[in-house]
Simulated scan of single mutants.
Amino acid sequence: MSVLATSFLISLLVTLLVIRYNHLHARFTADSDIVGVQKFHDTPVPRIGGLGILLGLSVAFVVRYFQNNEVGSFGLWLIACCLPAFIFGFIEDLTKRVGVKVRLLATIASAILAGYFLGGWLTSVQLLGIDNLMLAYPIVAVAITCFAVAGVVNAFNIIDGYNGLSSMVAVIILGGIAYVAFQVGDAPIMICAVALIGSLFGFLVWNYPRGLIFMGDGGAYLIGFWIAELSVLLTARHPEVSKWFPLLLCIYPIFETLFTIYRRVILKRVHPGMPDASHLHQLIYRRMVRLTNGVDDIKGKTYRNSMTSPYLWLLCLLAVIPAVLFWRSHMILKAFCLVFVITYIWIYWAIVRYKIPEYLIHRKEG
């Protein structure tokens, strides 16, 4: 598809230029904090990869507009709606001074814009009682939609911790959205999903495995919003698609966020926004990807970083595959959501207590 090729090439080239001329803008764009609890790189790296992803999408839909007005307009409107979330995330990448609350409000503003201009409102969640409230009081539907979109956006920002992790998880989820959109004959949503897949692959060429550039908050907010809105629009436009389909698709980043809040607020009794090094991907990095001679130089850290992400890609696939197979049946999807939650907690418990099966531990001489 032309939109896939265009978004890939533009993202690839823009990201290359950002890396190539890093010396000109590093004082503004580089992630120079290499000692924080959530930092796993040894040299300053540009963290504005989201710029290439956005430009890849934008050029692809401008080109598409002249080929197919309906699809091109839909994509461009979705880009326009995502701009508040992206811009405030991007400003945070440049200044490190935009608070979480401000970024949250920007995300909610993007959700409201998408709801108003594209009809992206949830009308039900297939839960007894809540659906009746949403029908009786439209403001409840608006609030739940904004909460859901903001939650998914924040979830993708939380899992953006290692080379290729958040971006490849997004590719896997977008593949599921594109498949179901194809099944129900919704070309605009399918092409929007494919376009972002192209942009993400252009970014991944430089991000994985060497980590030459990071996605940054702007990029994470962009892909989180894009996935959240395509999910809302897909279920709003096609009642046969279960509301639990996108929830199961995105359950890895969503549950990672919920579990993080539980761990910080209930177990550690700290503010939920307080950074720590206890995310599942961080535990996998430290305890499941090992260098047998204990070397922890730059090359070793880069290797461990890149080998951490595939574990989480597989975990994501365990949810995406049943979501794609049973996208119509909310009861089956609910059951698989429960199975995923139990599996996640078991994996976390096993890693914390060093009860990891040997065949899951990856070893290599450093």
Rank of each mutant, 00 (worst) to 15 (best):
V3R: 05
A5F: 05
F8Y: 08
L9Y: 01
L9F: 06
L12V: 10
T15F: 00
Y21S: 09
R27V: 07
T29A: 15
A30H: 07
K39A: 14
H41I: 14
H41C: 11
H41D: 11
P46D: 11
R47Y: 03
R47F: 03
G49A: 06
G49E: 01
G49L: 00
I53T: 13
L55Q: 01
V59R: 05
V59K: 05
V62G: 03
R64G: 07
F66E: 08
Q67D: 11
E70L: 10
G72P: 06
C81E: 01
P84E: 06
P84K: 06
F88I: 12
G89C: 04
F90V: 14
F90W: 11
E92P: 03
L94D: 04
L94T: 06
V102E: 10
I108G: 11
S110R: 08
A111C: 01
I112D: 04
L118Q: 14
L118E: 11
G120R: 13
L128M: 12
M134T: 02
P138V: 08
A143V: 14
G151A: 10
V153W: 00
A155G: 04
N157I: 14
I173T: 13
G176S: 12
A178G: 09
Y179F: 12
A181G: 01
Q183I: 13
Q183P: 04
V184M: 12
A187I: 15
I189V: 11
M190Q: 14
I197G: 03
G202F: 03
V205G: 06
W206T: 13
N207C: 04
D217R: 04
Y221C: 12
L222V: 07
W226Q: 09
I227R: 06
V232A: 10
H238T: 11
P239F: 09
V241M: 08
L249R: 00
F255S: 08
T260V: 15
Y262N: 09
L267N: 11
K268G: 00
V270G: 01
P272N: 05
A277L: 02
S278M: 08
L280V: 07
L280G: 05
Q282H: 15
L283S: 07
I284F: 00
Y285D: 02
G294E: 08
D296Q: 12
T302V: 14
Y303N: 10
M307Q: 13
M307K: 15
C316R: 01
A323K: 05
V324C: 13
F326Q: 07
R328E: 15
L333M: 08
K334V: 03
A335V: 07
F336W: 15
I342M: 12
Y348H: 13
Y348M: 12
V352F: 05
Y354N: 15
P357W: 07
Y359F: 15
Y359N: 11
H362A: 12
R363C: 10
G366H: 02
